[in-house]
Design a protein around this nucleic acid. Structure first.
Lengths: 334, 334
DNA sequence: CTGAAAGCGCTTACAG
DNA sequence: CTGAAAGCGCTTACAG
């Protein structure tokens, strides 16, 4: 910047004013500075800027697994919002581990970011104070009880209830809910919707917890069917789990939907043309990302934001993976 | 840091020495400093450190689309390597657009990173000089001709040739190659392998270019089948394109594999249990990520690295989506 | 083994 | 409308 200033015959803070587009600068000196910038090939140094400004124009996004397509889509929609506003989105991975979550947050903090978006790890130990240091902090996808922080989620209980009823209405009574980890807010909120719907129909809840990966769900299926051979339908907690259920059914020689009807929670592209196309609760991931990003921007600007749940509703896409259950004697009996 | 120094009764650079673990410090003062650090709740400021050290302990990863599972997996494997070495991985999105690519690179440069990994955009205008400013720069997944930079790729021509021969060997002669964008190195390298194999068998190449998205490939299928109704097999350029082919076949009422056999390039979890399970070229994405990260670390450490292609071989997973073609009159004729 | 000084590249008050 | 001074939080030489 000093080189530019010397070249243009002005002071360094005049260069700074021109570059930031703030404060009064005459058109003439402005042109001189701009010419000098290209002449000397000046490239700004964000580190120097951040050190003096005490805030880096960067927002962190801490998620549990980028290989989960839901989080990839979330990252994409948030990044698009921030890029337009000149903010960099910094992706951080917690691997769904509370210790890694803390470390990554500490790392992010050392960069003095302007804000933070977190999908908390399963047994997250994050407190309101941990997040307070970030100024603008918003939870997304998963909420944390007892935390005075805005959270963007979907209407999980209602959507899960609707998914469950679509199976009940087709005549199913033995419906397995293949959920995520016990203790995750997503699990408990979706489980609540499932239990409520199943209970209202006088059926017995059949709940299975997994590590919310495809491999974990796949391994859970044989166990579930051994414990309850009369299961005729299943609900998949997220896209990887829904994949895992299909893999597990294939492993034990069962077909979807003839032997087991299936409803997924969270859409994936392949579900639309899978044979059969999978009935699924579509989470509004783009809208959730945009809203979460907007809440961070509001907090940065000092606009008041309600702590607590900000709910974006999901939609049940009825496709072809739900049919009436087969007769009670079809397995082993024929 | 000054507060810590005052609290411990030492100078600031003694604190710095203790914190960096460099230089000689007596055990006694070391203990005093550490005690002061916790006492005053000191948190390091990476911005101050980076400004003075002229390098930020951060490596950029510029990809074209995080929603592509290949890139998500690549990010994951690279991040794991760097985290162990205390480097932060900064994910940047080019949207496969050369202008955005330039802007994101400029943004990254302003943070004075230690290194850079790029999967170049389709018609990338990046030059050796553009990358030279980053010190340690490595290309990954896509290479760029005429660039004196190390590139980590898979053996695309050979793997694509093997995929093509698996269809030829099953008796197919009308094999559609549904590729990515013309001009991308991945497209030309995979196309070369396809043309070579098809030519060796005396068959006619049937090449279709797409934007390498599922939607683009899906739209291309009806056109391809109208132009060549005798197509009996297809090869999908990447996982989204393979998805798009299946969706397109379903759109026009054709089944896989009875009507059209299919081989994919790049694996995805659902392909293992899709009915039929999809025969696919599995790219060694984790190994590619680890190698690319290691090359950056070597460059950072000053270890010499060969510019040019570093090839990690792919594997053809033979599953059930390839069968012998049906009789010549099956469509429209019966 | 430890410290006083200088400076990385910017921006923030404060003058004029 | 423009500039001289100070300082953001560290680390890098250089002394001792």
């Amino acid at each position: 910047m000093k080189t530019v200033a010397a070249h243009a015959g002005v002071s360094a803070q005049t260069v700074s004013r021109v570059l930031r587009g703030q404060g009064y600068v005459s058109e003439k000196t402005r042109a001189k500075v701009l010419a000098a910038v290209t002449a000397v090939g000046y490239r700004p140094n964000a580190v120097g800027r951040s050190l003096r400004a005490t805030r880096t124009p960067m927002v962190g996004l801490l998620i549990t697994d980028i290989a989960n397509p839901f989080y990839a889509a979330l990252h994409k929609s948030i990044e698009a919002v921030f890029r337009r506003r000149g903010l960099t989105l910094m992706l951080l991975n917690s691997d769904d581990d509370r210790e890694t979550e803390r470390q990554q947050l500490e790392l992010l903090r050392s960069y003095r970011p302007s804000g933070l978006l977190v999908a908390p790890a399963v047994h997250s130990s994050l407190t309101t104070e941990d997040l307070a240091g970030f100024g603008a902090a918003v939870l997304v996808s998963r909420s944390l009880p007892d935390l005075a922080v805005p959270s963007v989620v979907t209407n999980e209980p209602e959507a899960m209830g609707e998914a469950t009823r679509s199976l009940l209405d087709a005549g199913h009574r033995r419906i397995a809910a293949v959920l995520g980890p016990q203790g995750a807010s997503t699990t408990s909120r979706r489980e609540a919707g499932y239990r409520e719907a199943v209970g209202a129909a006088g059926a017995e809840p059949l709940v299975f917890y997994t590590d919310q990966t495809g491999a974990g769900a796949r391994a859970a299926i044989p166990h579930a069917l051994r414990a309850h051979p009369d299961i005729t339908a299943a609900i998949g907690f997220n896209a990887p789990v829904t994949e895992g259920i299909l893999a597990g059914l294939r492993d034990v020689g069962l077909r979807c939907p003839q032997d087991v009807s299936l409803v997924g929670f969270t859409d994936a592209p392949w579900m639309a043309f899978y044979p059969p196309p999978i009935t699924v609760v579509r989470q509004p991931v783009e809208a959730m990302g945009r809203l979460a990003a907007q809440l961070v921007l509001d907090l940065v600007d000092g606009t008041p934001v309600t702590a607590g749940l900000h709910v974006v509703p999901s939609t049940l896409l009825r496709r072809e993976s739900v049919v009436a259950p087969a007769g009670p004697t079809r397995r082993g009996g024929e």
